[in-house]
């Protein structure tokens, strides 16, 4: 079968770093293999890729928002525009799994394809099921972002926003876009959930609905004025229509501006803002992955969350997947002895 032999994973990392498209699917399958031996090999592969691309690679853009806000259609419109700019694109779309059966219907590919016409070879699209992360991101999403980020010019991550998992998406991407739709009447809910504190760009979709969209935009703008800008970036609100394509170029310009802003240092002589952002993302991922796998009981076995945080702080430049592997090994040996 075409899943890689364990001995091939190192070779696989090199193929990914050489931006070989044909290796991408194989690497993602390897990264999603939960069998212990395969998982060890996959973490090595991911650590190797991460060490080369931690601060570079693709611009990682996240799309989140309530169900029905038109994220998939917007994704299709963005893909079309980015393709016209000559970029290669990697897409990850996350859908919830059924808590009853564990299965999932992954329909974003169909919706985005409809909006885009058809995917050409320039678009790589992988659908992920959230599995046991109820309403959340798939655990393999981070690995997928990393692999796609090493191969393609831009990576887009689409996931349903239910108010709890925006933080996880924000930790995964460089630029988070929150998609709102007019007439949802959910502004208070949105504010309560703290959703507006995380996105770097807020778009009101379905601008073709006219005044309702404009009104929703100004409400969101007012809401944003009440929240602290994240790291000093003033979150803009934009009107778009995924349906007729209006506002899409402006949205991409805003994403580019945010990317440029991240590449500047926060203060003279400091590293670029992107460095700190990706490092925070790395730390939170490692912490939550350990917690998910071993629980509080497991974490306590190696001195608890504080010790984990300290370990992470000591290795600012180490790949997250390497740290995850090291700390997992420590917990496992602490639990077995």
């Amino acid at each position: 079968m075409w899943s890689p032999r364990p001995t091939l994973t190192e070779h696989l990392a090199q193929r990914i770093l050489a931006r070989e498209r044909a290796a991408v699917a194989i690497a993602l399958n390897a990264a999603d293999d939960a069998r212990p031996g395969a998982r060890r090999k996959a973490l090595q592969m991911l650590a190797q890729i991460e060490s080369q691309t931690a601060q570079g690679g693709a611009h990682r853009i996240g799309l989140t928002g309530a169900p029905g806000a038109g994220k998939s259609t917007l994704l299709g419109a963005l893909l079309r525009r980015l393709q016209e700019r000559g970029e290669t694109l990697g897409v990850i779309a996350v859908d919830p799994s059924s808590p009853h059966s564990g299965g999932a219907l992954l329909g974003d590919r169909l919706r985005a394809r409809t909006a885009l016409g058809n995917f050409g070879g320039a678009v790589f699209f992988r659908s992920l099921a959230a599995r046991d992360r109820l309403g959340g991101l798939a655990e393999s999403a981070r690995a997928a972002v990393l692999v796609l980020g090493a191969v393609f010019d831009t990576v887009l991550v689409e996931t349903v926003g239910v108010g709890q998992n925006e933080g996880e998406v924000a930790d995964l991407v460089d630029t988070l876009i929150y998609v709102a739709q007019p007439g949802a009447g959910d502004l208070l809910q949105t504010l309560k959930a703290g959703v507006l504190e995380l996105p770097d760009l807020v778009v009101v979709n379905k601008a073709d609905l006219g005044p309702a969209a404009t009104q929703h935009q100004s409400e969101l703008q007012a809401g944003l004025a009440l929240t602290e800008p994240r790291g000093g970036w003033p979150t803009p609100t934009l009107l778009v229509s995924a349906q007729n394509g209006s506002g899409i170029p402006e949205l991409l310009q805003a994403a580019d501006r945010h990317r440029a802003w991240l590449q500047e240092p926060a203060s003279p002589g400091a590293p670029p803002r992107l460095t700190a952002r990706r490092q925070t993302g790395r730390d939170r991922y490692v912490q939550s992955a350990l917690l998910h796998r071993y629980g509080h009981y497991g974490l306590e076995a190696i001195g608890g969350a504080t010790q984990v945080a300290a370990h992470l702080a000591q290795s600012p430049n180490a790949p997250g997947f390497q740290l995850l592997q090291q700390l997992s090994a420590r917990i496992e040996s602490a639990l077995t002895t």
Binding site: S101, G102, G103, A104, L105, L106, R109, L110, R113, S127
Partner: peptide
């Protein structure tokens, strides 16, 4: 899906 598979529905 109800049997627990992850299903990419392509249309």
């Amino acid at each position: 899906r109800d049997a627990g598979m992850e299903v990419v529905y392509e249309g």
